[in-house]
């Protein structure tokens, strides 16, 4: 099929803008990765290839501590947020649109509607009022809260796309409500649950504003630690750390998107 001489769908310049846009989108990522292999101590002066900064990063105890804090908080927050979001989504997708359900949906999505800095200030004041001093407890609670809508949205979308017929068919075929959930509903919405959990995990790992506000000794997360490094000056080691983080993020994103694409194909 050849395009007609006068293709009305083409706009001159649009493709060029798009090409430049994608270059611009990936330029910073490429620059960070490129300079992470720079031998020179100065970030932007290339003198030769080296992996020494990766070695330095992996031996950095403070970095590893921050990573441990971030992972612990992210795993707990992901599990908590996904479980809470799944329960709420099950209720909200199966209910008529009554007032209380609309309100509940808004409440679940509340962290998306408030500026994060306000939320951060709010939890800071709350914890100071409650006298909770344990940094990990504070972080985990706050992260679970702002991760919940990210877990909720894909699960909700998946449940809304799923006809009630499937659950009814399961019950019609002698499955108890629990069996129907375990063997039909859950496997069918699994891609949504997985995507939601991935999003929640990434959001928790990425968070700076709240974690910085709640920062105290022993609960410094990875982004907060990186911020403190940046404040001290850019170094190639920082580039190496950033590169590692970029690769992990991209891997998680690719897995998540590939899985949801596969699920879409399966259900067609």
């Amino acid at each position: 099929m050849s395009a007609p001489a006068h293709d009305i769908r083409r706009y001159p310049g649009a493709r060029l803008v798009t090409a430049v846009f994608f270059l611009w989108l990936y330029l910073p990522i490429a620059v960070v990765i490129w300079f992470s292999f720079n031998e020179n101590r100065l970030v932007s002066v290339w003198t030769g290839f080296s992996t020494q900064w990766y070695a330095a990063a992996l031996q950095n105890k403070a970095l590893m501590d921050a990573l441990r804090v971030s992972l612990t908080v992210a795993v707990i927050a992901t599990i908590g947020a996904t479980a809470i979001a799944l329960m709420a989504a099950m209720v909200l997708s199966r209910a008529p649109s009554k007032r209380i359900y609309k309100l509940s949906e808004a409440v679940v999505n509340l962290p998306l509607m408030l500026p994060e800095i306000v939320v951060a200030v709010a939890v800071l004041i709350l914890f100071s009022q409650l006298g909770i001093a344990n940094g990990m407890v504070k972080l985990t609670l706050a992260h679970t809260a702002f991760c919940t809508p990210f877990a909720f949205l894909p699960i909700r979308a998946r449940l809304q796309g799923m006809s009630r017929d499937f659950e009814e068919a399961a019950q019609d075929l002698y499955a108890t409500p629990l069996t129907a959930f375990r063997r039909v509903t859950l496997p069918m919405i699994a891609p949504g649950v997985f995507a939601g959990a991935m999003l929640a995990f990434v959001m928790s790992m990425d968070d700076f504003i709240t974690s910085n506000m709640l920062n105290s000794g022993g609960s410094t997360t990875l982004p907060v630690y990186i911020f403190s490094l940046i404040k001290r000056g850019t170094t190639p080691e920082l580039n190496a750390i950033s590169t590692l983080m970029i690769l992990v993020s991209l891997a998680i994103a690719t897995i998540a998107l590939a899985m949801s694409a596969r699920a879409m194909r399966r259900d067609l």
């Binding site: 908590g80 479980a83 809470i84 979001a85 329960m87 709420a88 099950m90 209720v91 909200l92 509940s104 409440v107 679940v108 509340l110 962290p111 408030l114 306000v118 939320v119 200030v121 709010a122 939890v123 004041i125 709350l126 009022q129 609670l141 706050a142 679970t144 809260a145 919940t148």
Partner: peptide
């Protein structure tokens, strides 16, 4: 099923914002 979501958001957002 909605209780955990309400409890979490109430504790970490609604009450705290009121306190702010």
């Amino acid at each position: 099923g909605l209780v955990p979501a309400w409890a979490l958001m109430g504790l970490t957002l609604i009450i705290p914002v009121a306190i702010v």
